[in-house]
Structures are given as structure tokens and as C-alpha cells.
Amino acid sequence: MDQIILGCVAALVAICFMCLYRAWRGPTVADRMVAIDILGILVVGFCALWAVYTERGFLMDIALAWLLLSFIGTITLAKYLGGQQLDE
């Protein structure tokens, strides 16, 4: 059981590196932002699986906080990209 979860965690780390490749080579700024947005959601899944593997509950709190902060960061960057003022 534990080995399968560890395999899933390893696969998620590989997927995160695929995402980082797109953030590195993205031709435009928007491509990099898409990659970082997706990376935020992937890290949430990674934190949750790692919490199950090590049986530490506080990693789940980190996952939830990361989810909300990544959403707010993406919205802010998208508004900035769209040329609007941030205090709107």
C-alpha cells in the first residue's frame, strides 16, 4: 500500500518537472503564468499524498493554504496582464 502511494508521489514530482519545463521555455509571459498556475494545483495534490504517506496532519493545512494563495496570485497576475489597476 505504502509503496503504491510512494510511486504516485514520484509520478507527481515528474509531472511537476514537466510543468517547470514549460515555465522555463514558454515563449510568452502568458505561457509561464499558465504553467505556474497549474503547478500550484499539482503541489496541492503532492502535499495531500505526502500527508497520507507520512501521516502528518499539518501538511493538509499547507495544501489548503497553498490552494487559496495560488488562486489569489493567479487572479492578481491576470489582472495585471490585462492592464487593469490592482485596486479595482
Partner: peptide
């Protein structure tokens, strides 16, 4: 976390697409 992801992720995608189109991608 399930409903949170299901609500926030399409909203972020919508904002990114609109911002990128206005910025001229």
C-alpha cells in the same frame, strides 16, 4: 478541498485567458 478546487480553478483559467487576450497574445 474538492469543491474549493472545482470553483477556483476554472475562475483562474477564465481570468488568465481574458488577461492574455487583452495583453495581445
Amino acid at each position: 478541498a474538492v469543491p474549493l478546487i472545482f470553483i477556483t480553478s476554472p475562475t483562474a483559467a477564465h481570468a488568465l485567458a481574458r488577461g492574455a487576450h487583452i495583453a495581445g497574445v
